[in-house]
Write a protein that binds this DNA or RNA. Structure first.
Lengths: 230, 230
DNA sequence: AGCCGACTGGGTACGCTGTTCGCAAAGGAG
DNA sequence: CTCCTTTGCGAACAGCGTACCCAGTCGGCT
C-alpha cells in the first residue's frame, strides 16, 4: 500500500538535495490551472514551468493525482482561519463558507477536483479542525458535524458552479444549449418549461445570496434535532 | 457555432443508411462506463464494442464530450416520470430525488459527468419539465424553481458521492488517507479532530436518510418565502 | 435507367498524454 | 576517500482524441 504523500518527508537525507520543493511545484501547477484549467496541468507543462524535465516530477510526486492533491491543499491553505470562533456556530460556518467560495472563485479548477476525492492534506485538515472548533459548544453527534462540513463544502461548490454557468461570458456551448432549449420550448410538449421562459424574467431578484439565506437553514436542519416541526 | 447534437437529425436522407444508432452507441458506452468508469469510455473502446472502427464514431458524434452527453441523457431516460404530480410538491420532489439517486447509484460515472456541464438533452429536459409541473401550484418565482431543481440535483449527487466514499470496500487510497488522519489526530495540534475520533462512534444513527430529512427543509427554505423566522 | 454527388466506414497518422526504465551525475555518511 | 543512496532526465511505450483521405454505397434527379 502506498503511503500518503503527506506522510513521506520531502527530503530524504542522503544524496543530492532536491532542486525544487513541493510548494514551488504546487504553486506552478496552480498558476497553470488558474489560466488554462485542469487540462493545462500536464506533467510536462508543470515540469517545464519549474524548469525541469518531465520525468523529474516523479521524484516529488508518485502520480498526477498526487500533484492534484498538492494543488487542492495549497488552495485550502488560502483560507484565513485566524478569526477565533465567535460562539455563534451558524454565523461562523457561514463565514467559513464565504471564505471557501472565494477560493473556488479564484481557482475554478477546484470544482473539477473536489467532487472526486476529498483528499485531505495538512491545510484541508486544518480547515476541518477549525469547523469542528466552531461547533464545539453545539450538542450534536460527531458524524452529523462531519456531514455538516461535507455538505457545506458541497453546497458552496454547487453554488459557484451554477454562478459560473449562468453569469460570465456566453460560451459557444451555451449558445447551442440555448438553441436546443428554444426548440424544446416551442415544441408544445413542454408547457411548464414554455411558461417558465414566457415570463419576462419577472424582476429576477438578482439571485439572492443563497449562502446567507439557505445555508443556515440547511445547517440548522442538519444539526438541531430539537424542536422538530413538519 | 456548432449546433447541439440534439438538433442534428440522426439520418441525413441521402447516402447509405448508418449502420449504427445513437441509442446503440449510448447503450454500449454506458455499459462500458458501468463496468470500468468513465476512463473505460474511449472512442476506440466504444467503437470496438459496437463493432466499428474508431474513426467511424465521429460520423455519429462530433467529440467525445458529445458522446458523454448521449450517455447522460440516456441515464436521465431511466427516470420514471409516469406518476402524476400529487399536489404535494415537496413530496413529489423528494420522490424525484429518490429516483435520481437510483440512477446515480446504478451509474456512478454520472458523478464525474454532471458537475461540469449540465448538458440538457431530450430526456433531461423531460425531467425538468416534470419537476416544474410538480411545482406548478407553488407561488414562487421561476428562477427560484430552477434553482431548486439544480439544488436537488446537486444535493443528490453530493449524497451519493459521500455514501460511495464511506460505505463499500475500503480502497487502498482510503487506507493511506486514514493513516495520515491518524497521524494528524495524534500530533496534538488538532484537539477537536482528536476528540471527534476519540468518541467510540457513539451510536452512529446509520446516517439518517438525508434525502427525507434534510432535502424537504432545503426546498422549503428555498421556495417558501412566506413566514420567515430567524 | 443511369449517373452524379452526398454520404458512410475506416485505415492511417499526428500530437499529446501519464508513466517507466536506465543511466549519468552528485553529494552526505562511514 | 570511497561507497551508496538519491536526483535529474532523455528516451521509449501504450493509449488517447481527433483529422484526413479514400473507397465504397446508395438516394434523388435528370
Amino acid at each position: 500500500m502506498a503511503r500518503s504523500i503527506w506522510l513521506r518527508q520531502e527530503r530524504s537525507g542522503r544524496g543530492p538535495a532536491p532542486e525544487h520543493s513541493r510548494a514551488r511545484i504546487a504553486a506552478a501547477a496552480v498558476e497553470l490551472a488558474d489560466v488554462g484549467g485542469l487540462d493545462a496541468v500536464s506533467m510536462r507543462k508543470v515540469a517545464a514551468a519549474i524548469g525541469a524535465g518531465a520525468a523529474s516530477l516523479y521524484r516529488y510526486v508518485e502520480t498526477r493525482d498526487e500533484l492534484l492533491e498538492l494543488m487542492a491543499d495549497a488552495a485550502a491553505g488560502e483560507i484565513d482561519l485566524s478569526r477565533a470562533p465567535s460562539g455563534d456556530w451558524r454565523a461562523d460556518l457561514v463565514a467559513l463558507a464565504h471564505e471557501l467560495r472565494e477560493v473556488y472563485r479564484r481557482h475554478p479548477w477546484m470544482l473539477d477536483i473536489a467532487p472526486g476525492r476529498v483528499a485531505l492534506g495538512p491545510n484541508t485538515v486544518d480547515v476541518l479542525e477549525y469547523a469542528l472548533a466552531t461547533m464545539q459548544d453545539l450538542d450534536a453527534p460527531t458524524p452529523a458535524k462531519m456531514e455538516a462540513f461535507a455538505l457545506l463544502n458541497g453546497f458552496v461548490a454547487l453554488l459557484v458552479r451554477s454562478e459560473k454557468e449562468l453569469g460570465g461570458a456566453t460560451t459557444e456551448w451555451q449558445e447551442s444549449q440555448a438553441e436546443f432549449l428554444a426548440s424544446v420550448v416551442t415544441d408544445g410538449r413542454h408547457p411548464h418549461l414554455a411558461a417558465a421562459f414566457a415570463t419576462p424574467s419577472q424582476a429576477t431578484p438578482a439571485v439572492a445570496d443563497l449562502l446567507d439565506s439557505v445555508l443556515p437553514r440547511v445547517l440548522t436542519g442538519l444539526l438541531e434535532t430539537g424542536g422538530d416541526r413538519p
